[in-house]
């Protein structure tokens, strides 16, 4: 009887916890049904042979998916990794740069500094990449296991049935009006870049001087405390930019809604930026003095003039972005009316 006990044990440790005893009892009773009266060892072996590999037998009872991420989530999983990976790497690289430019006082030669940043950068890309990959995979594997809701249903049954009539609602997108995926990714990465720089501004933006032995960081340009005090505004802008990017990804073309969203977002962002940049405490006085010494201007003029000059550049870019949106939208208006074509 040893054979049967070991066989059952082999099955048992692979069974789902829930019905383990019940399943085991059933298998045991089946084995006994199959055995003749007073079975010999060969009889037992024959019966076990017929039942087959205990691993396979136990597998049949498994209720959990036998894969990490199934076809239902695979596409989403891959595109999320593609989106988040470059963002995470960009943010961490800028942070690395910020921390090393100031921290590297003892590193005298410029080449030594560049090499050390390069080395750290490569290592950082690797470890950030692994982290992103790991956490997204873990989250999706969990979703795959928790969400049993539509497991038994056909994947299409939850949606309404498709008819050719639905094509009417999808407008044919002219190429000039289309928003490419790369444009959206670019926008999100750009948001990540400036936001990271913003929160490390005192370490990145400032005066560097070549004093014979590599670059020396003389003074930061901006007052980080002032920058940080505007965080609700910045968070709002970041939120709007990401919302707009996702909305573009969804719409895939410069529709009327996208153009207006774009306009509102640009106006609000530029408003907040101008508000921040014209704060008179924003520029470090050391920085203002340096500039006024350099150009022989008086320092009050510099503070005011500099702020508005930078603001002007921001405003020009914002206005251009708004106009650009309208131009792209207009290009598509001449599109052939699809309803008309369907009517024929």
């Amino acid at each position: 009887m040893k054979w049967i006990e070991v066989y059952l044990q082999e099955v048992e440790r692979r069974l789902p916890e829930k019905n383990r005893e019940d399943i085991l009892l059933e298998i045991q009773s089946t084995i006994q049904d199959m055995l003749p009266e007073n079975p010999s060892e060969n009889d037992v072996k024959d019966v076990l042979q017929e039942l087959g590999d205990p691993v396979k037998l136990a597998q049949g009872y498994s209720e959990k998916p036998m894969h990490l991420i199934g076809p239902r989530y695979y596409d989403l999983y891959i595109s999320l990794i593609k989106l988040i990976l470059p963002i995470a790497i960009t943010v961490s690289l800028i942070t690395l740069l910020a921390e090393n430019i100031i921290g590297n006082v003892e590193e005298t030669s410029l080449i030594g500094m560049i090499l050390s940043i390069l080395g750290k950068g490569l290592w950082l890309i690797l470890s950030v990449g692994m982290q992103v990959f790991f956490w997204i995979t873990v989250i999706f594997a969990l979703i795959e296991r928790v969400d049993f809701s539509s497991e038994d249903e056909e994947p299409t049954s939850s949606r309404k049935e498709w008819t050719p009539e639905k094509l009417k609602k999808v407008s044919h997108t002219p190429k000039k009006r289309a928003i490419s995926q790369w444009e959206v990714y670019g926008a999100i990465i750009w948001t990540a870049i400036w936001a990271t720089v913003y929160f490390h501004a005192d370490q990145l933006l400032g005066i560097y001087e070549n004093q014979g032995e590599g670059l020396t960081y003389i003074t930061p340009a901006l007052n980080q405390d002032v920058l940080l005090s505007y965080w609700p505004g910045i968070v709002l802008v970041i939120g709007l930019e990401i919302a707009l990017a996702l909305y573009k990804l969804l719409k895939k073309e410069w529709s009327k809604d996208v153009v207006w969203f774009n306009t509102i977002q640009e106006l609000l962002s530029i408003g907040i930026f101008v508000w921040i940049i014209t704060d008179e405490r924003l520029f470090q006085s050391a920085f203002i003095n340096y500039i006024s010494d350099l150009f022989q201007w008086n320092s009050a003029q510099v503070a005011d003039g500099l702020a508005w000059r930078i603001a002007a550049i921001f405003i020009i870019f914002a206005v251009w972005n708004i106009i650009d949106g309208f131009i792209k939208y207009k290009k598509g208006v001449k599109k052939t009316k699809l309803k008309h074509e369907f009517g024929k």
Binding site: E26, T30, L51, G52, L57, G60, Y61, D152
Partner: peptide, 16 residues
């Protein structure tokens, strides 16, 4: 029918 197919099948039918 393989027994390793039948018993799990019966459980699934019961579950549904």
């Amino acid at each position: 029918i393989e027994q390793s197919t039948l018993y799990p099948l019966l459980r699934r039918l019961e579950k549904k």
